[in-house]
């Protein structure tokens, strides 16, 4: 099986790990918290498949470019490129809203 090639996912700021998943749901590359995490990969693939059926713009058959799942302290950010799903797990430090 060929590798995913250069991706520079390890340079994403505030990152705790990444996954690269192919169209069959197999993990092609991983690191950090997500190293060989096939459970998270399977859930995120299900989510990507479901999300691709949701129309964002009612006028055009356009689907999402980025899927974020935001928890209190971290988030998963996923995108699709050349039939592969790239997932990054990032620390989430929500800023307090500025009250004018």
């Amino acid at each position: 099986m060929s590798g995913p090639g250069p991706h520079n996912l390890d340079r994403v700021p505030d990152q705790d790990g990444y996954l690269i998943i192919n169209g069959d749901g197999a993990v092609m590359a991983s690191s950090g918290d997500l190293e060989n995490d096939e459970r998270v990969a399977g859930i995120l693939m299900n989510m990507v498949r479901l999300a691709s059926r949701i129309k964002i713009n009612p006028d055009k058959p356009e689907t999402f470019k980025r899927l974020s799942v935001v928890f209190d302290d971290f988030m998963y950010v996923a995108t699709i490129s050349s039939s592969k799903v790239y997932v990054s797990k990032r620390r989430h430090n929500p800023q307090e809203p500025v009250l004018a």
């Binding site: 949701i54 356009e62 899927l67 988030m75």
Partner: peptide
């Protein structure tokens, strides 16, 4: 304890 917020982003809008 709480469900996450899911955000689908594109150029034309977010869900």
């Amino acid at each position: 304890s709480t469900a996450p917020v899911i955000c689908l982003e594109s150029d034309k809008g977010n869900v």
